[in-house]
Design a binder for these strands. Structure first.
Lengths: 371, 371
DNA sequence: ATAGTTGACACAATCGATTGTGTAAAGTAA
DNA sequence: TTACTTTACACAATCGATTGTGTCAACTAT
């Protein structure tokens, strides 16, 4: 390209003032400017002041791209989520952005739309953008994870959250779903319920498998029978919650409580209960999962388990930054499980205290590491 | 820096293979590689094939930062929103990311947390990241917009959405709130309601002012009185909806319908109506605004106005890309207003058809440009 | 066969910031 | 005063890709 004199302001969106401009004005080298701005010891205090002042005067903005290019590390984090809708992912992203921003990072967000191919493209995109690390929640159609090797081979720090790859050689942050199921069921037992049913989700998904496990754990702990006939498997839809309850009410010993693995399902069950003339929670207590916003709108308000979305995002960023800052020094992958929060609402709160108090084995229930 | 030989793989996250590597392997110049990859005419077809093949073999990923640095334009768009929660912003962001990605852009997302100072920092951050354009929804505390001049002075394309700066020298995408209020109220009139109240929002916010305007427009069109005593001003909270309805029901002529400028407010009103023994929609019809997810959970389902969140994001990106691609050629700012969609649900649907059909002046109601 | 074209690629500067090494001036010690 | 440190900067290469201008060869035309 022809040596272009600094005259026309171009159509460039580049900052109007670069380090070279400052250097020219002060008759010093760019080295001095760069080091003065980054508070390098080899620059005298007087010079530092002058540079800082001039930078402020001209509203100098460092060019992150140039810096990243030279240093080989940008201040960008990549996020790959299946989509940005509903209650869960937006909240997690909220947490991620907040934590990242606090650490001086910006985040690039990508949606896989539950499509592996798109997920693959997202990764390429983030690679090209030279992100310093990646946070991923897998798409539903992601069966193998070979495309993530590309990141690993380049030494790009990677943290999975919520929908994760199983194993102890990866960094993950998840909700402790088993604990959620356990807390919820234990609460129902404490309310005096003794015939607790479970509206379960697809068992090939870990979250639902674990919630069911927590349900059984609580039953066993309380000495109640673990009865498979009290478990109905659904896809967590509202109508299936209704249908599920219908099926359960037809049993010889109908349930006096239902722990649903999802709020929509719980809502359906509650509506069905009332259609059948049952009172909630008096005749049948109901608890859901996910803390969907409508749980506070439904009447009665639905007891549910909060998934700590924001904390999950923050924990994921913390972990990612740790890996990034470990800089080469072999970092041994860590798996973090967040403790869910049981939100007791009217749908499960019996007026009278529990007839038969349950043994207080609270502390025992803590699972592995808690973020 | 000491000339470092290509030996140690560094701790760099840089792509393991650069154009220089390809050039070396093929014994050609980087120029040739670059031009072959970008399909420049001065490169022979044979050479192009060889380069493409080698690039594929080595899984070459172009370094966007380097490219952006040289070209002065990145493939990044910046988003600044007050926060990423609730129903609205996540959906808009969803639309933005989808549209941007389709056009080969990645998006960097920033939250202002409703704080001007943070918003200012966000802009600096995006400037440093060398984004090609910015999409903004103003924070609630943003009273003057001087900090946006920094963008304009650098020729950075800018589009406001939803919470916009007023004026015809800026690019904006908003929902036509007046039309939304109009459609909703017209619907209530068509249901046979003649004493329609309005639960209004803070009038210093344009969205609420416009919804109220639409309400009055519909009344006037139907020849109904525009009665200020039928308007209660609130902050759109659930409790205020209840309180507002209580106040209205105490009037000499209580309303037979309520158009609330927000769904939460509508919900509160509906709950209050039932507490007072009124049937919805028979005794009092209710319509809200925003299409919150709980409107489909409440019983009866609440009639509401959809804000076209995703379309708004897409329209904003379209407009932004237009400005970006106009490349210098003076682009005259445009204001886009999206047409809202009335979602009629049980809360306002009277069993009997309208007693007195309303004059069909539908076409007349169309406002300015529709995105 | 000589001049004029065209095709296909190389040179080298450039975007803006970073950083190892060199070096002149100033300061300290002997 | 001579020698040795420090202090405070400057030089210049570098990250990876882009691009205006040369240049050499093969080709066409007269």
């Amino acid at each position: 390209m022809a040596p272009r004199k600094k005259t026309a302001p171009d159509t460039n969106s580049t900052s109007p003032v670069s380090m070279a401009d400052l250097a020219r004005e002060l008759n010093v080298s760019m080295t001095t400017i760069s080091r003065a701005l980054s508070d390098h010891f080899s620059i005298g205090p007087a010079m530092k002041q002058k540079v800082l002042k001039l930078a402020k005067k001209y509203n100098y903005q460092p060019n992150h791209m140039a810096s990243a290019l030279r240093k080989g590390k940008s201040k960008l984090l990549g996020i790959v989520v299946p989509y940005i809708e509903g209650r869960f992912f937006p909240s997690v992203v909220h947490g991620i952005e907040t934590a990242a921003s606090k650490a001086g990072y910006n985040v690039i967000i990508c949606q896989s739309n539950e499509d592996v191919a798109q997920e693959r493209r997202n990764l390429d995109s983030l690679l090209s953008a030279q992100v310093a690390g990646v946070l991923v929640s897998l798409s539903r159609t992601t069966l193998d994870h070979k495309h993530f090797d590309k990141l690993r081979s380049r030494g790009l720090p990677l943290v999975y959250f919520d929908r994760v790859v199983e194993g102890d050689n990866v960094n993950t942050v998840v909700l402790d779903d088993r604990e959620g199921g356990y807390l919820s069921t234990r609460h129902l037992i404490a309310q005096g319920c003794r015939h607790i049913a479970h509206l379960a989700g697809p068992q090939h998904l870990n979250i639902y498998k674990n919630r069911r496990q927590g349900y059984f754990d609580a039953l066993r702990e309380a000495g109640l029978p673990e009865d498979e006939s009290m478990v109905v498997y659904t896809d967590m839809l509202q109508e299936q919650g209704a249908a599920g309850l219908r099926q359960l009410l037809a049993l010889p010993t109908p349930p006096d409580a239902v722990f649903a693995a999802g709020d929509f399902c719980a809502l359906g069950a509650m509506q069905e209960a009332r259609r059948q003339g049952l009172r909630v929670p008096d005749d049948v207590a109901i608890a859901g999962f996910s803390n969907e916003s409508f749980t506070l709108v439904a009447e009665p308000n639905i007891t549910t388990v909060d998934q700590r979305c924001e904390e999950m995002g923050q924990a994921a960023v913390r972990l990612l930054l740790e890996v990034i800052n470990s800089a080469g020094a072999a970092f041994s992958p860590r798996q973090v499980a967040l403790r869910p929060e049981l939100l007791v609402r009217a749908s499960s709160l019996r007026p009278a205290p529990a007839a038969t108090p349950v043994p207080k084995k609270v502390a025992v229930s803590r699972p592995k590491a808690v973020g």
